[in-house]
């Protein structure tokens, strides 16, 4: 496949693939229970038993990171899918019917006016800390961008001759949208949601870091960093290691998104190689 011939895309696949495999096999790979305290091994430096050391409750940092990566990936994926579905729906409505367009886009503009993270933090705090809450908060914060991208794609598609032709031979609106317009918009939608996946992982880490993520003792990458923040001097490994995993995931997903965009939209390749 031509996509894999591109070096950056390949790096993206490797980075994301490595974390996904490690996270999926966490139950099997993790050497210790991620939530079991062991006060005899508090703040232990990395050695050959605890490869990434232990935290202030004596929990194995590597095991916590493996299970934390599971949470990050799950939240990121669900947010990408949900905001993709909702955003696509809003974009379709808005791009097709001018009457609702004005209203829907004003609401989207309003939501986009918030700094995304701040809105997500406020929403997550409002609804109470849980994984579901984080997913809802991030979906609300990041759907408007998807809706905008989708609306743009629908506007382009509806001006195409084949859509006009389908309309003139009497294809019903619903069928027209699903069979003729939607397929033309999937490429930009998929690319956009790859970026949303990456943004959601970063944002989840921030939410967990400031304390409105899934509640403890659930390990999440952001919460492990928050734990390690207080012991930066004695035990810097606690805070530093999870960040590397987040960076791998986000960098990998961004590279995947760029690769997909270049492959799906040849016009862009000249500009972004």
């Amino acid at each position: 496949m031509r996509l894999f011939a591109r070096r950056s895309f390949l790096i993206g696949v490797i980075l994301v693939g490595a974390v996904v495999v490690a996270a999926l096999l966490a139950g099997w790979l993790a050497p210790f229970d991620p939530v079991k305290n062991n006060f005899r091994n508090r703040l232990g430096a990395p050695d050959d038993v605890f490869l990434l050391g232990t935290d202030r409750f004596g929990r194995d940092v590597l095991s916590r990171i493996l299970f934390g990566a599971q949470v990050s990936l799950r939240i990121g994926l669900v947010v990408a899918v949900f905001s993709g579905i909702v955003g696509a729906l809003i974009g379709l409505l808005s791009g097709w019917w001018r009457g609702v367009d004005v209203w829907l886009m004003r609401v989207m503009d309003g939501l986009m006016a918030f700094p995304g993270l701040l809105l997500a933090i406020a929403l997550a705090a409002t609804l109470g800390p849980s994984e579901t809450t984080v997913i809802i908060a991030l979906t609300v914060a990041y759907t408007p961008r998807t809706a905008r991208v989708m609306r743009g794609a629908v506007l382009v598609a509806r001006a195409q001759d084949y859509v006009e032709a389908a309309r003139s031979v009497g294809v019903r609106t619903l069928r027209l949208l699903l069979r003729h317009v939607l397929p033309a918009c999937t490429a930009p939608l998929v690319v956009q949601q790859t970026y949303v996946f990456a943004i959601a992982i970063l944002a989840e880490a921030v939410l967990s870091f400031v304390g409105v993520g899934p509640p403890p003792p659930q390990p999440t990458l952001g919460a492990i960093i928050a734990d390690g923040r207080d012991t930066m001097v004695e035990a810097p490994w606690i805070a530093l290691a999870p960040g590397v995993v987040i960076a791998m995931l986000v960098l990998g997903l961004n590279l995947l998104g760029d690769g997909l965009r270049d492959a799906l939209d040849p016009r862009m390749r000249r500009i972004t190689s």
Binding site: L202, A205, F209, L240, G243, L251, N254
Partner: peptide, 11 residues
């Protein structure tokens, strides 16, 4: 752009 800024701060 892939690094979490709060983590970079700690680093």
């Amino acid at each position: 752009l892939s690094l979490p800024d709060f983590w970079l701060g700690l680093l």
